[in-house]
Each structure stands twice: as C-alpha cells, then as structure tokens.
Amino acid sequence: MENFLQQLINGMTLGSIYGLIAIGYTMVFGIIGMVNFAHGDVFMLSAFIALLVFLILTQVLGIAYLPLAFLIVLVVAMAFTGLWNWAIERVAYRPLRGSFRLAPLISAIGMSILLSNFVQVAQGPRNKTVPPMFTDLIHVTDGPLSVTLSYKQILIMAVTAALLLGFWFLVQKTALGRAQRACAQDRKMAALLGVDVDRTISLTFVIGAALAAVAGVLYMLYYGVVNFSDGFTPGVKAFTAAVLGGIGSLPGAVIGGLLIGLIETFWAAYFSADYKDVAAFSVLAVTLVFMPSGLLGRPEVEKV
C-alpha cells in the first residue's frame, strides 16, 4: 500500500508532463488533422532553452533567488518555444496545407530529425546535467503509511494544474478559443464566417508549444538532465496519451497523460523497468485497435 501510494504520486508527476505535451498533439490534430511528429522534439528543444536560460540567469545575470529564476525560465521558455513552433508551422506545414495527407507527415518527420540534430550540433551530444533544484523532501506519515513527496513533485503538479486552468479559460472563454474550436469543427465554415483560419492555426501551434515548453521546464527540473535525443520517446508517449484520451479532446489529453504516466510507473514498479516503454506502446496499439476514438473522443464517421 505504501509503495502503491508512492508510485501513484510518481506516476501523477510523470503523467502531468505527458498531459502537457499531449495537448499540443491533440489540438493540432483537432484543427488540421495532422500528427505533428515534431512535437516531441519541440518539447526537447524547450527543455534546452530552459536549461540555457536558467544558466544565463544564474551565471551571467547573477539571479540567486531560485523561485524567481524558475518563473523567468518558465515564461522565457514558453515565449521562445512558441516562436519556434510558429516558425516551424510557417515553414514546413503551411505550404503543404491542402496537399495530400502524407506530405505534412513526412515533412513533420523531417522536421523532427532536423530539430534533434540541430540541438545536437548546436549544443553537443552529451547529457547536460542541471544543478539540482527544489530538492527538499516532505515525509507524510499517517499511522503505518509513509509517503515521500519532493518539492519538485508538488511544484510540477501545481504548475500543471494552474496552467491547465488558464488554458481551459483560454479555450472556453476567449475569442481565440472560440475561433480555435470553430476551426476544429469545420475549417471552411469558420473561414466563411470571418475567422482568420491561418492565424488561428498559427496560434494553436504557439499555444501547443508553450504548453510543451512548460513540460520541458518541468522535465528538466524533475530529471535534472537533458539530451538532444530526449524528444522522441516522451513525444510518442504523449501522443499515446492523446490517442488514449480521444484525439481532439482537450480534457481527454490530460486524462490520457495521467493514465500513461501511471501505467508506465506502475509497470516499472511491479513488472519490469526494462519493458516500461513496451507497456506504453502496447497501450497505444490496443487503444487504437479496440477503441479508436479513445476515452472522450468523438467517433469518426466516414462519409462516402
């Protein structure tokens, strides 16, 4: 039981990160029906931006107060990752809109290879180890149970919850959110009603990247090490999360992320850590085969 609770907390932490990345996949798929293969690498890129900004802040600008540095890192990483994804969409995906379906997928795969190798060339292939932050632990003891929570984990879950609230507000209550939902439902109709579709799609990419950047900052914080090849596996797992939750559904992405995080953690804890990726990939295959619309997705009806 004790171990179970501990793993539950670890799984939720990991799941928060996956959920944040999954939103980017699900939004892009919802609006232009494309699997943005490079999204995992955008996430990795954001972790590097966060690392560099953190080092610049502490070493060059000499900011020693950690929470302030963390806040600045978060904001700056969100902004610059957003800019990256905006540029990627503009260069690699927009020219292919309306082209046949495989073209954007191949372009996105190319972009994914390009991004990870760009970071490798620009920052070197070695693991970058970050000085440990927020390392304090809290021991919660209640009778026979005792669970250890780290400040990091609390921070990760708190930041995720806060940003998801803000994001939910953005999508449900603002004009941009309305335009975005309208485009996801019917792009042509939205355009006829005066929604600037191109701008909405661009902003969707920016928002997706900003959330991925939050995930990147938290990932860097949690694991304390980043590498240029770190984008692929979390990317696929986040995509799995998006599919599991029902692609196109925003709450589904978060729930899927948490589920994947939990499945992976429990699998590693109770079965085999070597095969934890196999567990996540199998969930993807099983979901798609038996439940293609996921937990909360709308079933796709094919019209002749």
């Binding site: 082209s99 073209a103 390009l114 190798n117």
Partner: peptide, 21 residues
Amino acid sequence: AQYRMLIFGLAMVVMMIWKPR
C-alpha cells in the same frame, strides 16, 4: 559528417514542400 542528419532532415522538409507528390 556531423551535419549529415541535420541536412537529411532539412532535405526531407524541402523536398516535400518542393514536390509534395
């Protein structure tokens, strides 16, 4: 050779945009 995969990825994107079919 270090830039091999970088250019490879770039070529994939460029060729797709140039000739999507």
